[in-house]
Design a protein around this nucleic acid. Structure first.
Lengths: 336, 336
DNA sequence: GAATCACGTGTAATCGATTTCACAAGGTGC
DNA sequence: GCACCTTGTGAAATCGATTACACGTGATTC
């Protein structure tokens, strides 16, 4: 409550009549000091309103009790729930969270993982320069997106198989010609989903078409206009993201087509609006809460020294988290 | 590139044949060392791959070059764009960003603003214990939400007036009976918007009704069901948030009502989906990018020592950022 | 030519914690 | 009653930077 100068451990020590070493121990390992001393210290702490100075502790302990989250676009709605999960889990084990757009300058980026402010990284971007990523000597986990050139474990759903779920669902409803609205060309997720789409279509003997896209609402709308102009319109559509799917559906409705009467649309991610949109969106559900939590748990495990041999083996199979298809109102039987 | 132990300033100094003081100066104030020395140092830095240890620098300089953002719910789509703006602006002035849910435990929260890890706070939550907030002795700005008990400047739109815009718009379209779906009882934004709604309705001589809500999609849907059960349904609806409005509209459509044919709906915030929803949502636009940027600029100014007298004057009028009404497809003339 | 100044640099103190090491006091075992 | 733990504590080194202060050099001023 004292509004004077910052109180430091020395002040607490003086007030309690002990040494700073004892105060430090009383706070970080209460069992290592005598009960009477502990009580005196705690009282002095309370009386002075002492709060530790993290910089000093971080310096001495050479760690920051902090995690860094990097994502290519902080305003992306898909990420926000992951941020929340990561922050929650991190906070529960006493770690603070630093967040940054991963598309800041190369040098700034390098510094982030190098300045000792974080002691673990959750990376949601597979598009960074591998040299930068591998240059960091910090426990790091790739979440959702990945890059084979990164020398770090990954965590996420099986995107190839998930795309298959979408195709199987559409085929099961009788759709024989299916369109895929792709994500950005160079994005691993997009590439994997696209391949999963093609493989599943071929496995099911369905006709497959692919339109370019970039995960955004606009690209979905654009694809819808292009789709509307086709002679033989595919009756089933699998979009590489929910935003794209929502854009597609909106534009269809605007163009006077009925969803799912004229065309069935499946999205990917199950973002918050997916079930509130009209029609609600059939989509691939990614358990983002679970993903965020698992990522933190794994980074923390690495921080606590999982044997190096295990963590930096490039061949480590990615940890898999189950994705499921949620059937909603944007898909229905193929029109006759 | 050397993969050996972390290199420190001493190593650079040795390699360059100068003292650590000179290295430090060469890096932080290049003009203060001779050109030849500077060159030697820079080369040594490059050769060793030296990166500063922030903990050491933070300790010595008693600052962290870091901003803390606090929001009541990190996965809220309204905030994500603000986060992005804050991060971008902060990064551009060399600050890193720490993020946390503001509804973590009181003690953890206190520590966040007290442990020297941040030297400025952007607070997006008006519902915290004022004792905690005022206990922090850090430049702090209230963004979007505010609390009169916080002893800190605020930044945001004029919510009272903005609600008026919504009402005026509906009245202008001929609606005489208007429903407001409120936000959480104790939330300042909700309270202010509600009051703005009531005042504007009375000023316009329109009939006003208020339903409870909590900003969520579900509460909007719930309100729609309740609205549908009324004998004399208001024809205009003003929701305290876009999510709520989207929930309301979705549910209306589900119930077979036409928007805006049977009922016109106005939202608040202009989140990303607002213009993609079908029908696209008429809403109050909050310039979140601008808000985030302005907040950072102001905190930074405070950090650099705007005279105390100015920054902690409780009577400082809140900085105002202009909100506008965006007319889209969810509102139309009142049915005859 | 003495006094003064500007400039570049090094030495050492400093930031505020943690942790190693040493040691005193009291308890055990034989 | 001696050797040997165990426990609790303090003194001082340490983490890795920044910076106050002092000093040497050469230029400027009168």
């Amino acid at each position: 409550m004292t509004a004077r100068a910052r109180v430091k451990i020395k002040d607490v020590a003086t007030l309690a009549g002990v040494s700073t070493a004892t105060v430090s121990r009383a706070l970080s390992a209460p069992d290592s000091v005598g009960p009477a001393t502990r009580k005196k210290v705690m009282e002095a702490v309370k009386a002075t309103g002492y709060r530790i100075n993290s910089a000093a502790r971080d310096l001495r302990q050479r760690r920051a009790r902090s995690l860094l989250i990097l994502a290519p676009n902080l305003s992306n709605t898909f990420f926000s729930r992951i941020f929340a999960a990561v922050q929650e889990e991190a906070s529960s084990v006493g770690l603070t969270v630093q967040i940054s757009d991963s598309r800041i300058g190369r040098d700034r980026l390098l510094s982030l993982g190098y300045d000792g402010r974080a002691d673990g990284i959750v990376l949601l971007d597979g598009g960074l320069d591998p040299e930068v990523v591998n240059g960091w000597r910090l426990p790091l986990i790739q979440l959702s997106e990945w890059n084979d050139a990164y020398d770090a474990p990954r965590l996420g759903i099986d995107n190839h198989a998930a795309a298959g779920l979408a195709v199987d669902h559409l085929v099961g409803l009788g759709h024989r010609s299916i369109l895929h609205v792709n994500g950005p060309e160079e994005n691993v997720l997009a590439i994997t989903r696209r391949q999963g789409f093609l493989d599943a279509a071929s496995r099911n003997g369905a006709e497959a078409t692919v339109f370019p896209g970039d995960f955004t609402l606009e690209s979905g709308a654009e694809a819808a206009r292009r789709w509307a102009g086709l002679d033989n319109r595919p009756t089933g559509v699998f979009c590489a993201s929910d935003e794209c799917a929502l854009g597609f559906v909106s534009e269809c409705i605007r163009l006077g087509c009925d969803v799912p009467g004229d065309v069935s649309v499946v999205g990917f991610d199950d973002i918050d609006f997916a079930d509130r949109f009209v029609p609600s969106l059939t989509t691939i559900h990614q358990p983002r809460l679970e993903m965020g939590r698992a990522a933190v748990k794994q980074v923390v495990a690495m921080m606590q020294g999982t044997p190096k041999a295990e963590t930096d083996a490039t061949g480590t199979p990615p940890e898999r988290i189950e994705a499921t298809l949620v059937e909603r109102a944007s898909t229905g039987p193929a029109p006759a």
